[in-house]
């Protein structure tokens, strides 16, 4: 069920990219899509009533491995978030520059290219 909601969020983001006419809204759609995937990855490693994957002095290693959530997806998500940050920052920067040149955020008016 919760995976389906993740997919729904993904589709919402895709809809935003495909159907919105405002550059900022396209960027927001992209961010939503990105975060849907991040949420999905976090859910992969989730375990009900699991503990944080931090080993302490007092814990037994085997018991820890049985009860902690998977740390790998968390590491992946951290990297994916950083990459998403980079792409978003670049998108916003280009968007600002486009506004400088065209004076609008409306993609139907930004049409110097044919393809």
């Amino acid at each position: 069920m919760i995976y389906v909601m993740c997919l729904a969020l993904f589709v919402v983001g895709l809809y935003g990219i495909c159907c919105k006419k405002n550059l900022i809204k396209i960027i927001l759609g992209f961010i939503i899509m990105d975060y849907a995937v991040n949420l999905f990855i976090i859910l992969i490693g989730y375990r009900k009533n699991g503990i944080a994957p931090i080993l302490d002095k007092t814990m037994d290693v085997n018991k820890f491995a049985l009860s902690s959530v998977d740390p790998m997806p968390q590491a992946i998500v951290l990297t994916a978030i950083v990459i998403g940050l980079a792409v978003t920052a670049l998108m916003v920067a280009v968007c600002v520059r486009i506004y400088e040149r065209y004076g609008t955020f409306d993609i139907t008016k930004i049409r110097k290219l044919k393809g």
Partner: peptide, 9 residues
């Protein structure tokens, strides 16, 4: 810039 944005999306 327009091409770059398109490519980026």
């Amino acid at each position: 810039l327009e091409a770059s944005f398109k490519y980026m999306v």
